[in-house]
Design a protein around this nucleic acid. Structure first.
Length: 971
RNA sequence: GGGCGAUUAGCUCAGCUGGUCAGAGCGCCACGUUUACACCGUGGAUGUCGGGGGUUCGAACCCCUCAUCGCCCACCA
């Protein structure tokens, strides 16, 4: 099976063939075999240059299986298999993401537990339930446990979830090396995340800051810019009267959030706005609450929005934060972390009426408070008109369902160029170095980096996740000293500061004056996920893996997480290693349902991937996935899967046929076991050499496409060549390949040439198709190369091998012979007779060069077409061709114009009729245009004929079978 | 509002740097059981290449413009 540069022989070890082929059972049979034989195991003993390493996207362990998984993972697997056959030691691990909110909730509900960071680790902890899935356990019924215990439960549960994914991926035929799996909450992974953080801290790349930031009131955590999602949200414009402090009248402002009125700290107008600019510097009194606020000028106040005057509250939106910061305004927060209004009346509200209204609002949600304020304003007459409904875009946490609030808190940030131009430029430069497939996805990266306006907020006020490896000293007065965090040594990692004690302290000093206290926050899940290259390649371990695999070669991922996963991974790698984490990234598109809606869980139109695999087989589903280019949305199309299944069956049948020839006894029973030795020296017939020539082209083109990550293009090239091989070449050489017992030496050589070509070609197609259809190709490969190992470890074909075997015979001989055969078939099809019907005589008409090429394969053509009688040739002259081309062009164009006219006439029906004069003019114009079009077609045809006369493009005039006389009784 | 993709046969999609670029498969119609394959074969019909301008000897392809669909970013008074 070897195919080295110098080889001219491919040997085969033939196995018994089944009497009937089938695709059923192949997945079970081969996935087991591959696992047992470690077909996809990463050897790990070769230098970096001979390794191809893939940073696999970890699916969410608690998530649901989705055909989208099948789709994008197949794309990656095709590349992995291709690279493996190209001789690389492929490092293709699998990861599972069991970090983050979805898992946190799942573990809570499954085991009936919740994290309490004040509890110590309990090695004997038993959760109250095992598997209460479906039932929601109320928070008060959840048993508290330490974070470490919670993580242990999570690891147990994830192991269950992972099984489902592993089953699916195994069935699908992903050539993953399961020995290199990871999960993001695991011990090694926590270690990497904490170590990378400590390194960042040491280099000043992370910092903490007390500042207003976006806050989700449902999950009660800060969220990062990358996790925002703007959505339409209904609101109402309320027009409020602010009173001039000098009593000279009112100023109106509009707001959708009247409940923030008590938090108002200023009114802003545009300095250019002549309606208001004389107010700048004066004071206004807020309605209801009677608080004096100053009027400021700022260009961010838009004159055409609302009334042009806007109230600034701490904080209603990010513009408020900007004004607050730039204009040094007072801070009057009234919204709590849970989204409710503060219970106590703030000291800046001093009027009795204001204090009364605020008491009404206290401890209410913003939504209820809004109604209360609006009602009070109406009563006081300070609400002008009725509130007007509006839809506006509002920021949400992508997993949340309430608008984000802005809350001031202490958070950790990682520098990502959001506040630092130098770093931003470096990261943009990294983007330029990365090869995006498809390339246009690069723009999403650039857009995102250019649009960053804050550093990456990496702390989350959740309980589950990778803890920050930090403690803080507690001062003698009981205050926490956030400015001097205590860090562990790297070799102590992973730690949980809520249960572990820092060096130099006793456990009993926790939360005591002169003692220490834990950083209770956890890191953003992306803070771990951004380190998947470091995690899988064993960064910082001395087993040699890192040196062989990092920087990695490929990051496949979804286009929706360019701003998160792709970008954050580049940030970490840039900071830690001053390199890109990988050289290439492939972005897959979405799956659309048959109605062209994006498939998503929320829409309920998701297809469970096991169904199509059951129905059509893994190869067929892979075929559907492989047909879609990277970055392009694909329609869920079972029709395409049917075609995949058809290809599978064709592979098996064609292989069986090729391998059976010459091994059959008189009863057509295949003799058992045999060796074959296919030497290119035995390929002596021009037609067979032409096949080699074509094969060389196919290998060259498919290889080049795959090198460019264009798996769909390569598949088309391979597939169409394979079908053409089956439909044409196989039919052409059948007779010669069978041979006859009393054949002459020349005929025997012809038979050998055909069998050799069939064997080599089939061998080649199995290799070419192996990355796409791993099961059928492996099955057929087993018949051909029994005991010689997997096709998936076989070398990828080399164009030069087939090129050499072609001995410069042009592939066109195959085309012309195929055309001649097709012309005979056409004659029979038009006569509505069986293909077996003999042809008594025939004249082949065509241009000279084509006829000459066809003659090289004449005996094969005549045998395949069952021509038993006289054969003649008519060489088409240039004039013939010109006439033919022109006639055809004119007739085509005339027909076309006729059809168009008919269609337009149909369209015009029902519309109001034109006046006779209009109709005449229109008809004249149209006729003129049509005649011109026909004339143009004629000209074009003439030009083409001229070109033909010069000997250019001579293959395009088909060979025609004329004057065919069929022997109607002859079969 | 800014950006990116898409728009080609009834359907799913190819068409590379403008010149055999009007294509494939499915579906449809007709015919055919041929010693690999009825989960089959052979043949056939089907398009103003989203609309409108422009550049060019020549445009599905380049430019302008409009439209529709999808996605990303900005827009929170």
């Amino acid at each position: 099976m070897a195919q080295d540069d110098n080889t001219e022989i491919i040997t085969a070890n033939l196995a018994p063939l089944p009497s009937k082929v089938g695709v059923e059972g192949l997945e079970e049979k081969w996935s087991k075999r591959w696992a047992a034989e470690k077909t996809y195991t990463f050897a790990g003993n070769r230098p970096r240059g001979e390794v191809y390493s893939i940073d696999t996207p970890p699916p969410t362990a608690s998530g649901h299986l989705h055909v989208g998984h099948v789709f994008s993972y197949t794309h990656t697997d095709i590349i992995a298999r291709y690279k493996r056959m190209r001789g690389y030691d492929v490092f293709y691990p699998m990861g599972f993401d069991d970090n983050g909110l979805p898992t946190e909730r799942r573990v809570q509900n499954y085991y009936g537990v919740r994290v309490d960071t004040s509890l110590p680790y309990d090695p004997d902890f038993e959760p109250p339930f095992h598997g209460t899935e479906g039932k929601k356990i109320e928070a008060r019924d959840q048993v508290p446990c330490s974070r470490t215990n919670f993580i242990e439960l999570c690891e147990q549960l994830s192991a269950e979830d992972e099984k489902q994914f592993r089953n699916l991926f195994t069935r699908l035929g992903l050539s993953v090396d399961w020995a290199h799996s990871y999960h993001t909450i695991g011990e090694r992974e926590r270690t990497v995340a904490q170590k990378a953080f400590l390194r960042n801290l040491g280099r000043g790349e992370v910092y903490q800051k007390q500042a207003p930031g976006l806050w989700d009131v449902t999950f009660q955590t800060a969220v990062a810019q990358a996790e925002l999602e703007s959505r339409q949200y209904p609101g109402k414009y309320h027009k409020l009267a602010f009173h001039k402090a000098d009593g000279s009248g009112d100023v109106y402002i509009e707001t959708t959030r009247p409940e923030l009125l008590p938090a108002c700290v200023a009114v802003i107008v545009n300095p250019e706005d002549e309606r208001y600019n004389d107010l700048i510097g004066t004071e206004l009194i807020t309605p209801l609450f009677g608080v004096r606020v100053k009027v400021y000028g700022h260009e961010k106040a838009e004159m055409d929005k609302g009334t042009g005057a806007v109230m600034c509250c701490t904080f209603g939106d990010t513009t408020d934060v900007e004004w607050w910061r730039e204009l040094h305004l007072a801070t009057r927060p009234i919204i709590l972390r849970n989204g409710r209004i503060t219970e106590e009346v703030p000291e800046w509200i001093t009027t009795d009426e204001g204090r009364r209204v605020f008491k009404e609002m206290g401890w209410k949600t913003t939504f209820s408070a809004r109604t209360i304020v609006a009602d009070e304003l109406k009563k006081s007459g300070e609400l002008i008109g009725e509130p007007r409904p509006t839809m506006r875009m509002t920021n949400f946490y992508e997993k949340g369902d309430k608008p984000l609030e802005i809350i001031t808190s202490r958070q950790w940030y990682l520098r990502n160029g959001g506040t630092d131009q130098d770093l931003r430029q470096q990261l943009l430069e990294r983007g330029k170095q990365l090869r995006f497939h498809p390339d246009f996805m690069r723009q999403r990266y650039d857009n995102w980096v250019e649009g960053l306006n804050t550093d990456w907020l990496i702390s989350r006020q959740r309980f589950f996740g990778v803890p920050f490896p930090l403690w803080y000293p507690v001062k003698a007065n009981g205050e926490t000293d956030f400015d001097h965090p205590i860090t562990p040594d790297e070799d102590e990692l992973p730690i949980d500061p809520t249960t572990d004690t820092p060096a130099g302290y006793e456990a009993g000093q926790r939360d005591k004056p002169n003692g220490f206290t834990a950083e209770k926050d956890v890191m953003d899940t992306w803070a771990t996920s951004s380190l998947t290259p470091q995690i899988v390649t064993h960064w910082g371990e001395d087993d040699g893996l890192y040196e062989r695999t990092f920087p990695m070669d490929l990051r496949p991922q979804g286009q929706d997480i360019i701003r998160t996963w792709l970008f954050s991974t580049i940030v970490r790698s840039h900071l830690e290693s001053d390199t890109l984490p990988w050289s290439d990234t492939t972005l897959s598109g979405w799956i659309l349902d048959p109605d062209h809606k994006k498939m998503s869980k929320s829409k309920g139109n998701v297809v469970v991937p096991n169904e199509p695999i059951d129905k059509f087989g893994a190869d067929a589903v892979r075929y559907w996935a492989a047909s879609a280019r990277l970055g392009m949305d694909a329609t869920y199309d079972t029709g395409q899967m049917k075609i995949g299944r058809r290809l599978d069956i064709k592979i098996l049948n064609a292989a069986k046929f090729v391998l059976a020839i010459g091994r059959e006894d008189e009863n057509h029973e295949v003799t058992q076991g045999a060796h074959a030795s296919w030497s290119t020296h035995n390929i002596t017939r021009p037609l067979d050499r032409a096949v080699m020539s074509r094969l060389a082209d196919v290998v060259r083109d498919a290889t080049s496409a795959l090198d460019d990550y264009e798996h769909a293009k390569a598949l088309r090239i391979i597939e169409s060549a394979f079908w053409s091989f089956c439909d044409n070449y196989l039919e052409l050489v059948k007779n010669r390949a069978y041979g006859t017992p009393d054949a002459s030496d020349a005929d025997k050589a012809g038979t050998l040439s055909a069998r050799t070509t069939l064997g080599l070609t089939m061998d080649c197609f199995l290799r070419l198709l192996a990355p796409y259809m791993p099961y059928a190709t492996e099955e057929a490969w087993g018949w051909m190369h029994e005991g010689e190992g997997s096709v998936h470890r076989a070398p990828w074909p080399k164009a030069s091998f087939y090129r050499a075997a072609a001995l410069k015979v042009p592939a066109e001989i195959l085309d012309q012979a195929s055309q001649a055969l097709a012309s005979l078939r056409k004659a029979k099809s038009e006569a509505k007779v069986s293909m077996k019907t003999p042809i008594l005589n025939v004249t082949f008409a065509g241009i000279g060069s084509a006829l000459d090429q066809m003659r090289e394969a004449m005996t094969d053509v005549l045998e395949a077409g069952r021509v038993s009688g006289e054969v003649s040739f008519r060489e088409l002259t240039l004039d013939d061709i010109r006439k033919k081309l022109i006639d055809q062009a004119v007739s085509n164009e005339t027909e076309r114009q006729k059809r168009i006219a008919e269609k337009q006439a149909k369209k015009a029906e029902g519309k109001k009729p034109l006046s006779p004069e209009q109709a005449r003019k229109k008809a004249e114009a149209l006729t003129k245009r049509r005649l011109a079009a026909i004339e143009q077609a004629r000209k074009k045809a003439e030009e083409e004929a001229e070109q033909l006369g010069k000997g250019e493009g001579g293959t395009e005039i088909p060979i025609l079978a004329e004057d065919t006389h069929l022997d109607e009784n002859g079969d």
